[in-house]
Amino acid sequence: MPENTQEGFIDQQKVLDNEEYSIKNTQSIIQKAVDWFRARSMFVLAYGTGCGAIEMPPIFTSRYDIERLGVVGVATPRQADILIVSGYCSYKTLKRVIRSYEQMNEPKYVIGLGSCTINGGMYWDSYNTIKKLDEYLPVDMYINGCMPRPEALIEGFVKLQDNIRNAKSEAGYIQYRENNAFYRANQEKIFGKNTTPTFEENFAGMNQ
């Protein structure tokens, strides 16, 4: 690249102005590396809340083999990065889902699987299932379909990896932390007195 000419200078300027190399982003290079690693190792807690659980065995076994993307199933919330809410949530389940989600360590992401997590799906007029999951938990990725095919699931995972790697949108757990009052209010609206305890309440219980 000729540096001493006008064109060369402009080219250099373009490189510096490019967001990826700009000085204001240099602090986040470590962050970028971390995000890249994060995207390549997703530990999944597949909570079988509904029908979607039946497509979990195929994608975790030899035919679709999602492990090649770095996605591995784990048993407990405390080890997991991703919570899959696989299908409709009844009241009783939603309460357990929220508890599982709150036990997970940050960073954490939620995948809503199936039409029924988006808008009620088949059970839009059922008295016992919730209609919009994102009112109660911050959903990072919805995968629609009833039920979604394994290919759709893999596509969803790849998209989520993209989002994590490029930090395209603000991650759900930050929203959950910052807008906690909104989520709590929605949870209290359907659970009433039986809402899961807040962090402070839990903590107060431990001190006694």
């Binding site: 988006i118 808008n119 009620g120 839009w124 007029d125 059922s126 008295y127 919730i130 209609k131 919009k132 609206k189 359907i190």
Partner: peptide, 17 residues
């Protein structure tokens, strides 16, 4: 059940069933 649902939930826009 429909009245109960309308009372307790609101639907996403675009789902006017």
């Amino acid at each position: 059940t429909l009245a109960y649902v309308n009372e307790h939930f609101d639907f996403r826009i675009g789902r006017e069933d």
